[in-house]
């Protein structure tokens, strides 16, 4: 914990990209998220931490309406992206998800070539006018995913043949290819070894230049390393939200303190 205490952060958060107010989520009879209010800044990495089952992944999936794919899930409250309610009837969840990309816990490359994996989103959304443009998008995305140098000679090889860390970076490149504004990451390193984790974390820090990144993580060290803002969830409540340095060094709520010092969770 000591090295975390020394973390000093330069926080250059812009204005709020996503504003969530009074969000309630029910899974059938379970009240999974209770009254969550949070502002997620642009060009910032926001970490959601908390013990298992506290609702942090559920809340993350509200932000691009991935919960719509689950029948029993109901979302109430307001979530605004750039001031527009994403749960408004006029909003097409499919369009929304192109703007709010997502990277999952387990790397999930499609059983296609590396090139086709990255080109998938641009093709669906018609982002490229011709093959040359698509090539360009693929290269740019793979570069942003910090994996270009490893795969540039074998773009036709299947994406499933890469190592776990490479697969996850490929998935990040795939998400970046649709030019999203927000990138949601659901425990992106939990299936990776320490070296791959370090690479992905480095990548997250670079992605902050362009995107608003929200990351769910079980590792408090990771939250401390990569994020500027941290939100602590407990039993469906947002207990505390603030600057990462402050959360880890000087938590206001006793529950947060118990969690980060390892007494609960």
């Amino acid at each position: 914990m000591n090295d975390m205490a020394r973390v000093e952060r330069v926080v250059d958060t812009g204005q709020a990209k996503i504003t969530a107010s009074d969000v309630q989520v029910h899974y059938g009879d379970t009240h999974a998220i209770k009254d969550v209010n949070v502002n997620i800044g642009d060009k910032t990495v926001t970490a959601f931490i908390g013990p298992s089952g506290c609702g942090k992944s559920t809340f993350l999936r509200c932000l691009n309406r991935m919960n719509d794919t689950i029948d029993v899930c109901r979302v109430k409250g307001n979530i605004l992206l750039d001031g527009e309610d994403i749960y408004d009837k006029r909003v097409d969840p499919v369009q929304l998800r192109a703007k709010v990309g997502m990277v999952f816990q387990k790397p999930n490359p499609f059983p296609k070539s590396i090139y086709d994996n990255v080109a998938y989103g641009p093709r669906i959304h018609g982002l490229a006018k011709n093959k040359a443009e698509l090539d360009e998008i693929v290269e740019k995305s793979l570069r942003r995913g910090a994996i270009w140098n490893e795969v540039k000679d074998r773009l036709d090889a299947p994406g499933t043949g890469l190592s776990g860390g490479q697969q996850q970076r490929l998935c990040i490149a795939r998400a970046v290819a649709t030019e999203p504004e927000v990138l949601l990451m659901d425990e992106p390193c939990s299936a990776l070894d320490p070296i791959a984790t370090a690479q992905v974390e480095e990548l997250i820090d670079e992605l902050r230049q362009r995107y608003s990144v929200v990351i769910v993580t079980h590792s408090m060290q990771q939250a401390a390393r990569v994020s500027q803002k941290t939100a602590f969830f407990h039993l469906g409540n947002l207990v505390e939200f603030g600057e990462t340095g402050q959360i880890f060094t000087n938590p206001q709520d006793p529950r947060t303190e118990s969690y980060i010092t390892g007494r609960i969770g």
């Binding site: 794919t69 997502m102 059983p111």
Partner: peptide
């Protein structure tokens, strides 16, 4: 076919039938 495949495709802003056609069926 693992749910993660569908999630990956839907998360990129593909519709259900695009997901079925381009990810689920090939898999």
């Amino acid at each position: 076919v693992p749910q993660s495949m569908r999630d990956g495709s839907l998360g990129l802003g593909a519709t259900k039938s695009e997901t079925v056609r381009q990810v689920v069926l090939p898999a």
